[in-house]
Design a protein around this nucleic acid. Structure first.
Lengths: 204, 204
DNA sequence: GCACTTGTTGTACGAGCGTCCAACAAGGTT
DNA sequence: AACCTTGTTGGACGCTCGTACAACAAGTGC
């Protein structure tokens, strides 16, 4: 009888990525409380000890998972803008509504994202990643808004408002999926975008 | 030499409340990962065993903390509306902007709130509390919006948009306090409210 | 076929976890 | 002053946690 190999070797980068993806799935399913080395290792189909071979500790794995997830989101948003027409308004709308289409509007990705939010205050290295990530969002939004002709003194506030709206819709999409569907969230975001970028600021 | 009492008895309700408040502080400071029975007990100045005397388990304490925090938020919002004039618009604005004034716009309260978000997906009893809480928000908002003359078919979407915006601003206020201050968040919310409740929906 | 590198496993360790519970003591009643 | 109720403590229980590490084996070069 021939015994099959007890395990298969993997390209370091591939194994590393599979650990990161397993970590993201566990974070989405069980939250930070369930994201232990052993749980993640089982999810990746690997022994617990192997995690220590690729990451100095479980915190580093979680941070790497945030960085990887953030990069995925960035790439999807950039791709949406690149696929849009040259019209500044269309590019802005593409950037914002991409948050409510595949691959971002995925309950698992959003749940992972919420787990990261819950880590920002307690973990300085996650806070640093968060600042970088959201600084990027804001910067990109301000650029797209400026291209739409928004006055310079309105850029910052409008970018913050849009970011807040998108995050809030993500939250409801993920935590109250029976109350809100992705296409409705996209419609709400489109409508809000039009209102935010119209000239009449109303009283305040 | 007279030894002082080793501990002081407390009214059951007062002790219960002090455990809940200690739990909220720990959740704000360390997130769900640090909210252990022992940590919470130390925070409350009490032995770990006492937690089991007031709550069937640590999960029940956390759920009670969510319920208590939610009730505090509700009360603050209701008080703001009650203090407003009879003008429907003023009442709506009071309800929304109260989220960015004391006692709600408190970093500790918001951090606690974010910790609850991270529990919704993994803990059914927290999910039930969440549904109830946010159902209440939406219902109240829809009522105030209807009083402002918003057409019935716009109530739901507008309420969702406002809820999302407020949650998103809370998030930035709590996670990026160096980027956004409470008064600026209030100004953004006021402006957005005016835009959401104006008649012109623009294209979309 | 042998040596070598290194990805991978399994185990062991100390620490912290939630929960339980016998013993203690504070405060009120009689 | 004796008593009772019960809030409170502190330790013990079995478990899971993160980490470290020796042993093993897969793949590579020769």
């Amino acid at each position: 009888m021939t015994t099959q190999p007890a395990f298969r070797r993997s390209e370091p980068d591939a194994r590393r990525l599979s650990l990161i993806e397993a970590c993201a799935r566990v974070l989405a399913r069980e939250g930070i409380a369930g994201a232990s080395v052993r749980t993640i290792a089982v999810e990746a189909g690997v022994s617990a000890g192997l995690v220590g071979h690729y990451f100095p500790g479980v915190d580093a794995l979680i941070a790497a998972t945030y960085a990887h997830t953030g990069a995925r989101v960035d790439a999807a948003l950039e791709a949406a803008v690149a696929a849009a027409t040259d019209d500044p308004r269309a590019r802005l709308e593409a950037y914002v509504t991409a948050s409510f289409a595949a691959p971002i509007a995925d309950p698992q990705l959003l749940a992972t994202w919420i787990a990261f939010w819950s880590l920002v205050r307690a973990r300085p290295e996650i806070a640093a990643l968060h600042d970088e990530q959201y600084g990027g969002f804001r910067g990109q939004l301000e650029k797209l808004l400026a291209d739409c002709g928004l006055p310079a003194n309105a850029l910052r506030r409008t970018a913050i408002a849009i970011t807040a709206l998108v995050d809030g819709l993500w939250l409801e999409l993920c935590l109250s999926p029976h109350e809100l569907a992705a296409d409705e969230a996209a419609a709400i975001a489109r409508d809000a975008l039009a209102r935010f970028t119209s000239t009449a600021p109303a009283a305040g």
